[in-house]
Computed example of a mutant assay.
Amino acid sequence: MMLLLTATPLRAEDCAAPLAAAEAYRTAAIDAARGRAPLRRDYPDCPPLGAAVTEWRDAEGVLRRASLRSGGEDSAFTAETYFDAQGRPRFAYVSGGAVSGARLTQRIAIGADGRRICEARRVTVPVYPFPNPWPDALLPLAAAREGPCPTEQENERP
């Protein structure tokens, strides 16, 4: 039997199974890092009001969960990425809000090769122009490093 992979992303209605599988990585990552002290890095130089990255590692020191929080005067977001036992990103969850009352939730399934499989997004009314698709530069896809704002580095983190 031959499996055909298309270059086009799956439609939202086709994402249920891939997202459910990806969310299993979320549960496994949380369990693996349970009881482990997180490492937090603050980046006050990130425009407009700074950013913070919090990371959780498992007992072997593998990055299993990372959270990036940032925002401005009109909106803020938290982007969380969950990693498999080999430290590869497998699921991302973005939540945010705006002073207008708009709320965003976005779930992103990530394949073993690091590419997005599919994503499901919900923005409440009143609509706010949250980026769509969510930029990789605003996802913690690797361990944060010391230095300048991670969101301006296009995730060139080691």
Rank of each mutant, 00 (worst) to 15 (best):
Y82C: 03
A85H: 12
A85K: 12
G87K: 08
R90M: 05
A92N: 01
A92L: 00
Y93F: 11
G96T: 03
G97V: 02
A98T: 11
V99A: 13
S100A: 14
G101H: 02
G101L: 04
R103P: 01
T105Y: 00
Q106Y: 00
I108E: 02
I108R: 01
A109G: 03
G111D: 14
A112I: 01
D113V: 02
R115W: 02
R116Q: 10
R116K: 05
I117T: 13
E119W: 10
E119D: 08
V123K: 06
V123F: 12
V123A: 09
V123N: 04
T124H: 07
T124P: 04
P126D: 07
P126N: 11
P126A: 08
P129Y: 05
F130M: 08
P133W: 05
W134T: 05
P135H: 05
L139E: 07
L139S: 06
P140D: 10
L141G: 07
A142R: 15
A142T: 13
A143N: 06
A144Q: 07
R145G: 14
R145I: 07
R145M: 13
R145N: 09
E146G: 12
G147C: 11
P148I: 14
C149H: 10
P150V: 14
P150W: 12
T151D: 13
T151K: 12
E152P: 02
Q153I: 07
